[in-house]
Simulated scan of single mutants.
Amino acid sequence: MPLICRNNKTASEFRLILREGNFNRRFYGRDRKERFLTIAWNRGKSQTVVVDGIAYDFPENSILALIINQTFDFSDPESVVAWQFNREFYCIVDHDREVGCVGFLFYGSSQPMFVNIDEVQQDKLNTLLKVFQEEFEMKDIIQEDMLRVLLKRLIIIVTRLAKKQYLAGDMNDEKLDIIRKFNLLVETYYKKEHGVKFYADQLCRSPKTLSNLFAMYNNKSPLSVIQYRIVLEAKRLLMYTDKSIKEIAYELGYDDAAYFSNFFKKQTSFAPSEFKSAEASSVVGI
């Protein structure tokens, strides 16, 4: 069983997962009501993690951050240590004001980031993990506050490492913050807003400025990031729910199901009906 700190008055919850042989997540299914961010540390040998139907190599001694609505499976879950928390326990957006860009770990990229942990950082994290375990045993009135402080420290440590590994040398904090905020805005509004201009306006930047900035950071354009997020959600809904194509199109902001179907096929080479009927594990991946 995971170690859990829960406050019934505020609905806040924080979990520490240790040596759980069946640790996984099914957001479109049994876990739909659980809205947890997850930080997973692979302390064992390299293994496979399947995130929304796509298999990735989860290297030895690396950390992966997963957002609320992602479905995931580990090939060796007992080797994974995971911290899970909801917005009520620790709000990424609110705490950004305190520590700066902590949201980068979860919203700094549209693709999973595997953060490598060297021996020095492993020692730090092992020490921090012991303190986490001790605090979960302390059932007093300041337990929640202490665990929140420790979680903040964990996020800062991993974020610093992620920024060093994934950012180009000329990517300063201001530019990084624009990208992170763009990704966070997309996660919030992608079902309604499909064009770059809306997000550029929210960030007080021009679409051209965003395009130039993304060209420095990765190969995806801002429009590609938006479209990738729409298609990803469409695939999830097609695979994990019984909703019709028309219902899915409407949920994703398309009044015309035929237009949505054409968009989906252009992005994936599959019509939605073909994707829905295919064996996701062997024919198409998310």
Results as ranks from 00 to 15, higher is better:
203 L>A: 02
11 A>L: 10
239 M>V: 13
116 N>V: 10
264 F>V: 08
9 K>M: 06
209 T>K: 09
80 V>W: 00
145 D>G: 06
232 L>E: 10
96 D>N: 15
88 E>D: 13
135 E>S: 07
34 E>L: 12
119 E>R: 13
253 G>M: 03
138 M>L: 11
182 F>C: 05
68 I>D: 06
214 F>D: 02
267 Q>D: 01
19 R>D: 09
37 L>S: 03
155 I>T: 11
99 V>D: 01
53 G>A: 13
121 Q>R: 13
144 E>V: 11
117 I>T: 01
152 K>Y: 05
186 V>K: 00
104 F>V: 08
93 V>R: 14
8 N>A: 10
103 G>A: 05
104 F>C: 03
233 E>P: 06
19 R>V: 10
163 K>P: 05
163 K>G: 09
56 Y>A: 07
104 F>M: 03
61 N>Q: 04
281 S>D: 11
227 Q>G: 08
34 E>N: 03
80 V>N: 00
43 R>D: 01
230 I>W: 01
242 D>K: 12
50 V>S: 13
177 D>K: 15
194 H>W: 00
153 R>C: 06
176 L>H: 04
112 P>V: 09
205 R>H: 11
226 I>L: 10
7 N>M: 07
200 A>D: 05
175 K>L: 09
152 K>W: 06
229 R>V: 12
195 G>I: 10
81 V>D: 00
138 M>K: 14
108 G>E: 04
92 I>Q: 03
231 V>C: 03
280 A>D: 03
284 V>C: 14
271 A>V: 08
134 E>N: 14
194 H>P: 02
273 S>E: 14
175 K>N: 06
65 A>W: 06
46 S>N: 12
62 S>E: 07
58 F>T: 08
51 V>L: 15
237 L>G: 05
172 N>S: 07
255 D>C: 11
78 E>G: 15
148 R>V: 04
56 Y>R: 08
253 G>Q: 09
186 V>R: 00
23 F>R: 00
98 E>V: 15
138 M>A: 13
254 Y>N: 10
223 L>M: 09
113 M>L: 08
48 T>L: 12
47 Q>E: 12
278 A>L: 12
215 A>Q: 10
221 S>G: 01
194 H>C: 06
223 L>W: 07
54 I>M: 13
124 K>T: 14
199 Y>D: 00
84 Q>W: 01
21 G>C: 04
259 Y>D: 12
100 G>Q: 07
261 S>N: 04
248 I>Q: 00
279 E>S: 14
146 M>A: 10
9 K>S: 10
24 N>D: 11
205 R>T: 12
222 P>L: 01
282 S>I: 14
63 I>F: 02
172 N>I: 05
9 K>Q: 12
72 F>L: 03
253 G>K: 05
167 L>C: 08
78 E>H: 09
176 L>I: 15
132 F>G: 04
107 Y>P: 05
161 L>W: 11
72 F>W: 01
146 M>P: 01
